[in-house]
Computed example of a mutant assay.
Amino acid sequence: MPGGRPRSFDTDAALDRALEVFWRHGYEGTSLTDLTTAMGINRPSLYAAFGNKEELFGKVLARYLDGPGAYAADALAAPTGREVVERLIHGAVDLTSGENTPRGCLCVNSVHACGPDAHAVRQDAIAVRKAGEAALRRRLEQATDLPSHHDPATLAALVHTITDGIAVQAASGRGHAELQQIGTLALRALLA
């Protein structure tokens, strides 16, 4: 027996549009109407293809990490510890204050702007951020070019604190050029 009508929309394109809406407005600031309007689908199609709003956000979060946020995983492949840190900080500036992206970071916004009703979404975003910090710590443990007084776990936490701060500043309207200057100064202080 056939499984119903085939989808009349491109699921990848719909996910990209949902990503942008969540990124701009946060999880709780995004309504189902916002999503269906941006995605060009009705609610039954959204539920059939992506599940409820929380499940859709999980799919969007994975898409974000594989798409716009992939710079972080790419940075870990840099040949030196210094380059890893540089790529992470400058990548955060480019991602969160770029001309073609919403301001701020989807993960940072989701952690800070979710109330008790969105606990699971907040926990998912926290888990993603913790995994990123743990991966950075492991990479920095392998680095031989960093000053010996740098503890990899503390340095990883500090780099994440700086990139989170960059995202918050970008979401508050601070410009790309100014954030690049802040990132450069942070790197000088970090890697001295």
Score class of each variant (00 low, 15 high):
residue 2 P to V: 13
residue 3 G to V: 10
residue 5 R to V: 01
residue 9 F to L: 08
residue 10 D to Y: 10
residue 12 D to N: 14
residue 12 D to H: 09
residue 12 D to M: 09
residue 14 A to C: 06
residue 17 R to Q: 13
residue 18 A to H: 03
residue 18 A to N: 01
residue 20 E to Q: 13
residue 24 R to I: 02
residue 28 E to N: 13
residue 29 G to E: 11
residue 33 T to D: 15
residue 36 T to S: 00
residue 38 A to L: 05
residue 40 G to D: 08
residue 40 G to Q: 08
residue 41 I to G: 02
residue 42 N to H: 10
residue 43 R to H: 13
residue 45 S to A: 14
residue 45 S to P: 00
residue 46 L to W: 05
residue 47 Y to W: 06
residue 48 A to R: 15
residue 49 A to T: 11
residue 56 L to I: 08
residue 65 L to C: 06
residue 65 L to I: 03
residue 66 D to F: 00
residue 68 P to C: 01
residue 76 L to I: 03
residue 79 P to N: 02
residue 80 T to R: 07
residue 80 T to F: 13
residue 82 R to W: 03
residue 83 E to Q: 12
residue 86 E to R: 13
residue 89 I to D: 01
residue 89 I to H: 01
residue 98 G to Q: 11
residue 101 T to W: 09
residue 102 P to V: 08
residue 103 R to N: 05
residue 103 R to Q: 15
residue 103 R to W: 04
residue 107 C to P: 06
residue 109 N to P: 00
residue 110 S to L: 04
residue 115 G to V: 05
residue 117 D to T: 14
residue 117 D to I: 04
residue 118 A to D: 12
residue 122 R to T: 08
residue 123 Q to W: 08
residue 125 A to R: 06
residue 125 A to K: 11
residue 129 R to M: 14
residue 134 A to E: 14
residue 137 R to I: 00
residue 139 R to C: 02
residue 142 Q to P: 01
residue 150 H to I: 02
residue 156 A to K: 03
residue 160 H to S: 07
residue 163 T to P: 09
residue 164 D to Y: 08
residue 168 V to T: 11
residue 168 V to W: 03
residue 169 Q to L: 15
residue 170 A to Y: 04
residue 173 G to W: 09
residue 174 R to D: 07
residue 174 R to G: 00
residue 188 R to G: 12
residue 189 A to K: 07
residue 189 A to H: 12
residue 191 L to A: 06
residue 192 A to R: 13
residue 192 A to G: 12
